[in-house]
Every structure is written in structure tokens, then in C-alpha cells.
């Protein structure tokens, strides 16, 4: 029974990916390009050499953070759609510290990371408090706060930390930038993201608090009746998921972007949601899914240069994967499907 369930969790996304790629190929063919060529350049661009692998991992890093943010919140039944806003707040906080603090280098990096996480956590806590004490719909609140965070970032790069005439902030000083990861384009933010995923995995599945948090997410009433402090877990899930995103924002700024600018982090929040859902809210699977989609994006640039197929094809493929995966997950749960499957299995035996 259980094995069967896990099988579906892997097979459904894999099938969805295959179908989505097939549709992607059809679109590419319809645009007059050779799908095989396009796919070859896609792969080459993302994993073809060390440089490209580094770019892929670098692009994956922020996505891993927002994916983990979504995974954690949804495990507790909290639909935090504010990963993007929390990510941005983390970056804003880090940007201030990195450019204004009297010290640079490692201490500044650590402070940026911690303060970024705290900023993201506090930003998410606004929605958490409104949810827990006012019973408000966290989805709408977190999305609204995304817009507010994006606009606030706009104030920062057009006014408060503006770098001369260009609407962007001054850059993070060299000493406070993150070191490269094994000489790749990716920075040490990548291993930090992976470690964060492992820690989350351990917490959710190997600690009592993680167990209780999942129970709250699956059945709030039963959790309450069985003596769990539901409000505390709900608030915690907001704050921790926000902190993960905030940490991601801080590290993205210090490692890759180096300054705040229009379009920073755009779409990362919803991407994280999509990837978390494809990964069935499993933190480790989430890391893999995030790398996969980052590869798709990085590779699509090469594909565009070589074949003229626009990069947004990769967005379509990603969107199709989520559309098919979620529908597929629902389908395998339908009693009709289960019966059909059981009948087939019986016939074969």
C-alpha cells in the first residue's frame, strides 16, 4: 500500500515531465525549429560543461530556498505564497548591512545571513499573526505583502541606496561577496541551500516537533484534541518558512546579484510553490526539482541563441509540468482509478 503510494509520487511527476517536454517539442517544431536540436542545446547549455553546470547550480540556489520555504509551510497546512516577498526582505536587509556596516568580510556575511533570515521570518510573521489571531486567509495576505515588499525594494534602489543615476543599489563590497563553490560560477550559497534542505528533512521526519508539525498540517482538529499547541506550530511555520526565504534572499544578493535592481527575485515565490508541489512537499526532492528547473532555464538561453526558440518555452514546460503533476496526483487518488488499477493488477497476476 505504502510502496504503491510512494511509487505514484515519483511516477506522476516523471510522466508529467515527459508529457510536458513532448508538448514543448511540438511547440518548438511549430515555431519552425528542430526539436532534437533544441533539446540538445538545452542540455548542453545547462550541463554541457563545468561552467554551465556552475551557472545551473547558481540559478538553482535561490529556487531551492523558495521551494524549501513552500515545503515547510505547507507541511504545517499553511499556504504561504509569500516566498518572494520574504526573499526580497531578506535581500534588502542584507543589502543594508553589506553596504552600510563598518566591517566587511566573513563577519559581515554571517550577520547578513542571520539578519536576512530574521527579516524574512518577521515579514512572514505579519501574515502568521493575522492568520492565527484574526483567522485571516494567509494566501491573500502573503501575496499582498509580496507586492509591498517588491515596492519597498523599489524605494531602496531608486532612492535610499541608489547608485548614482542608475536605478539600482550600490554593489556589495568585494570582501563581503560569497566565495565561489569549487571554482564554479555557483557560490557557497548552493551547499548552504542543500544543507538547509537536509536539516528540514531531518526536522520534519526525525524529530518529535517535525512530527507534530506535520500532524497539525494534516489534521488540525486531531492535533488540537491530542494536545498539540496548534497556534504555536502555525506561527512557527510562518516564521521558519519566511526565514528560509529570507536567508535565500540574503545569500542571493551576496553571492550572485550583488545589488538590488528592478526584477530581482521576480517570480521566485510562485516558482518555489510549483516546485514544492511537484516534489510532493519533500525537501530533498524539492532540491532536485529546483535544480531541474534551473537547468531548463539556463539551457534555454543557449537554445535561444542557437536555434532562435524563445527562452519562454522553458517557462511553458515548467508550467505544464505543474499542471499535469497536480492533476495526475489527484487522478491516482480517485476511487475509479484505484479500482481500475487493482483490476489490472489482479488480471496480470
Amino acid at each position: 500500500m505504502k510502496r504503491n503510494g510512494i511509487g505514484a509520487l515519483v511516477i506522476v511527476p516523471l510522466l508529467s515531465i515527459i508529457i510536458s517536454f513532448l508538448i514543448g517539442c511540438m511547440i518548438i517544431a511549430a515555431l519552425g525549429a528542430n526539436p532534437a536540436d533544441a533539446m540538445r542545446y538545452l542540455l548542453k547549455g545547462s550541463f554541457g560543461n563545468m561552467r554551465n553546470i556552475g551557472t545551473t547550480l547558481s540559478r538553482a540556489t535561490p529556487l531551492i530556498f523558495t521551494t524549501l520555504c513552500a515545503c515547510f509551510a505547507y507541511r504545517c497546512g499553511v499556504f504561504n505564497l509569500g516566498g518572494e516577498g520574504q526573499f526580497i526582505i531578506g535581500a534588502i536587509v542584507a543589502c543594508y548591512i553589506a553596504t552600510k556596516a563598518p566591517f566587511t568580510g566573513f563577519p559581515a556575511i554571517v550577520l547578513c545571513a542571520l539578519a536576512g533570515a530574521a527579516g524574512g521570518g518577521l515579514w512572514a510573521a505579519i501574515a502568521g499573526v493575522l492568520k492565527v489571531w484574526r483567522g485571516q486567509n494567509e494566501m491573500i495576505i502573503t501575496i499582498m505583502l509580496n507586492y509591498v515588499a517588491t515596492l519597498l525594494m523599489g524605494v531602496v534602489y531608486t532612492n535610499w541606496l541608489r547608485d548614482g543615476s542608475v536605478p539600482q543599489t550600490v554593489a556589495v563590497p568585494d570582501e563581503t561577496q560569497l566565495a565561489s563553490f569549487f571554482g564554479l560560477r555557483a557560490t557557497v550559497a548552493f551547499p548552504v541551500a542543500v544543507i538547509a534542505g537536509i536539516v528540514l528533512f531531518y526536522f520534519l521526519f526525525y524529530t518529535s516537533s517535525g512530527f507534530q508539525l506535520r500532524a497539525v498540517g494534516l489534521n488540525m482538529t486531531a492535533a488540537k484534541v491530542n494536545g498539540f499547541n496548534v497556534k504555536r506550530y502555525l506561527l512557527m511555520s510562518f516564521i521558519v518558512s519566511g526565514a528560509i526565504a529570507g536567508l535565500g534572499g540574503a545569500l542571493e544578493l551576496l553571492g550572485t546579484q550583488l545589488r538590488l535592481i528592478n526584477g530581482f527575485a521576480a517570480g521566485y515565490g510562485f516558482d518555489g510553490v510549483a516546485m514544492a508541489l511537484i516534489a510532493s512537499l519533500h525537501p530533498l526532492a524539492g532540491i532536485i526539482v529546483a535544480i531541474f528547473f534551473a537547468a531548463l532555464r539556463v539551457g534555454s538561453t543557449t537554445m535561444q541563441t542557437a536555434t532562435g526558440v524563445p527562452t519562454s518555452v522553458s517557462d511553458i514546460i515548467q508550467a505544464l509540468v505543474i499542471v499535469f503533476t497536480v492533476a495526475g496526483m489527484a487522478m491516482v487518488k480517485l476511487p475509479e482509478f484505484k479500482n481500475w488499477f487493482a483490476r489490472r493488477a489482479r488480471k496480470e497476476v
Binding site: V273, I316, A319, L320, V323, V326, A327
Partner: peptide, 27 residues
Amino acid sequence: YATITLCAEQIVYGMAINIFAPALAAF
């Protein structure tokens, strides 16, 4: 189709639409 016939979770599927439709528009 997903929410009525396949009984997919509405919130999750709405989110999928929020990712799919703008991507389609941009493309």
C-alpha cells in the same frame, strides 16, 4: 476538469493556473 472531475485540491490547482496562464501569455 482537474477540480471537478479529478477532484484535485482547488487551492493547489488555482496556483497551477496562476503559474501556467501567465507563462502562456508571456510566451
